[in-house]
Design a protein around this nucleic acid. Structure first.
Lengths: 150, 150
DNA sequence: ACCTTATAGTTTCACTTGTAACCAATTGCA
DNA sequence: TGCAATTGGTTACAAGTGAAACTATAAGGT
């Protein structure tokens, strides 16, 4: 063994394509974007707005803060999304009796109409994605996500 | 059955917390952000820049286009990340002989130094995440991601 | 009651991002 | 050879984003 062969520490480059956080990021972006592409053009609806709408569909009369908690989105992002939705007549904003700071948000008639068109479309995308997996794999994925999101 | 109980189509709200695209998005953002938080403050390094660096570590002398292909990132994003990296003296940019449009990108000494600090840190995060899973689950996750990304 | 602190939500500002237009070098082919 | 189409990469502009400051209301303690 010669002296030169020793002592140069090898760099150990990350293999992005096998790096879990990276793969998750690619997958997530691809999936969310492909859904968003459908409703953005058709309904002038951003992903943030859509997420707010899904929360208001499930939990009607939520306050903005509750939407933030349930979407894990930024407070400012929610505020702006709500403003645009109200502006567009898709969400009605009221004030909570007993705390005038608090808003009471509801999907309007028009909001529900859009919701009822977009929701099946989103579900179809999910089904398509899950269609790539066997029953076993779907079950494992469920369990794995539960643990990771724990 | 009375007339009223018929014909009002129930809204079927998406349950975000069981909706795969949404869960992937939360997981991915949480994970990537927690890694990024560490190197952003410490090295003034954005996630895009870090991704470019990992590619240049694995495939030295790549062109910008090759980086784009390998990261699946946007062409403009890469261009800007590279510009900042060059500016900061972390990447050396040369020109390809035989096609003067094409760049030849390499980590500089300083770039390697940062790489060698950040890479283990990123790996540690990945290990921590995977630590939540059993051996079985890890194996399934691998396979599932292969299929979904395939 | 008074004053401090906390909470709901919005606005501002600086920065990032994506789309489209762009420039320059290269290729294809009439 | 000459000129349209392609490719590598950057720039410009508009839209989106987050951190911090701000307004208004409410709660808590003295």
């Amino acid at each position: 063994m010669t002296l030169e062969t020793v002592s140069v520490p090898a760099h150990a480059p990350l293999e992005l394509e096998h790096f879990l956080p990276y793969r998750l990021s690619i997958l997530s972006n691809t999936v969310s974007q492909s859904i968003a592409d459908e409703y953005q053009g058709r309904f002038q609806l951003s992903m943030t707005e859509w997420r707010v709408m899904t929360i208001l569909a499930r939990f009607p009369a939520s306050s903005a803060t509750q939407v933030v908690e349930r979407t894990r989105m930024d407070k400012v992002a929610v505020s702006r999304a709500v403003a645009r939705l109200v502006e567009a007549g898709r969400v009605d904003r009221g004030t909570y009796d007993g705390d005038k700071r608090r808003s009471v948000l509801q999907l309007s008639e028009a909001g529900w109409a859009i919701h009822d068109e977009v929701a099946p479309l989103a579900r179809a995308h999910e089904r398509e994605l899950l269609g790539k997996l066997s029953e076993d794999e779907k079950a494992w994925l469920e369990k794995i996500l539960d643990k990771l999101l724990g």
